[in-house]
Design a protein around this nucleic acid. Structure first.
Lengths: 120, 120
DNA sequence: GTCATACTCAACCGCATGGTTGAGGAAAGA
DNA sequence: TCTTTCCTCAACCATGCGGTTGAGTATGAC
């Protein structure tokens, strides 16, 4: 699982981690702050943060004993680029399909075939 | 793992499945077609397709013995909406931060404090 | 130095996941 | 009917993941 895109998708496949990312759009937070809303141990939260960090979604610095967590929003672009790329390809394909169907319809009307039942 | 968004992210966290989605933007394909490029059994590919189907990324119909697989691109929107929502929040925050910094700078120049060393 | 705070590392546990093989169902062709 | 093709289901196995607890590290306060 060395691929960055894989790590980002995997990191966001967990509801708790998505929630933490959402929380971090309000501003940086310490591990304790982030752990507070959840019913899990602080070690579990620390693990989640490690996953987010290895995905490049988050960076951690130091402020005395605290380890402030900072959201790196640029990584989102990696996903949006992937998604948009294939969404566009899919849409283009549907447009071509529509064009083909429209052309078929044109030919049908041009050649005047009123029996709709035969058009299987 | 009942949440749809979780299923979509988890489904795309696998490189093989992302590759299959990419492949399906070229058009529908059978399980055999999709399995061909990979060095895994057809059963493994069938399992991947089940994951994609449960995430709503793909639908399967029937054509004789074949089970054509069709990409459902609308589900992408679910992700883009989530991503864009928090990306915007993050950006807005940075803009506010920039504004605060700019204002701090204004006040510094207005009150004429040339000693930059004291501005900790 | 000693203690408290904030956090990470390591080991373990249960369960999900991606892979395998083997058997079986559904539909077309002989 | 029997066979072949295409695919799914079931059982199993190894690995990874999210959780736990316990020990250890880093820094500030006394």
């Amino acid at each position: 699982m060395t691929d960055q895109l894989t790590r980002v998708f995997a990191a966001l496949a967990d509801p708790t981690r998505r929630d933490m990312v959402a929380r971090l759009t309000d501003g940086d937070a310490t591990v304790g702050d982030l752990a507070a809303p959840y019913a899990v141990s602080i070690q579990a939260v620390s693990k989640h943060l490690k996953v987010l960090e290895e995905a490049g979604l988050v960076t951690r610095s130091r402020d005395a004993q605290r380890r402030p967590v900072h959201l790196e929003a640029e990584v989102f672009d990696l996903m949006t680029k992937w998604i948009e790329r294939y969404r566009k390809r899919a849409e283009e394909r549907y447009q071509r399909l529509d064009a083909v169907l429209a052309e078929m319809n044109d030919h049908t009307t041009e050649t005047e075939l009123p029996q709709e039942g035969t058009a299987s």
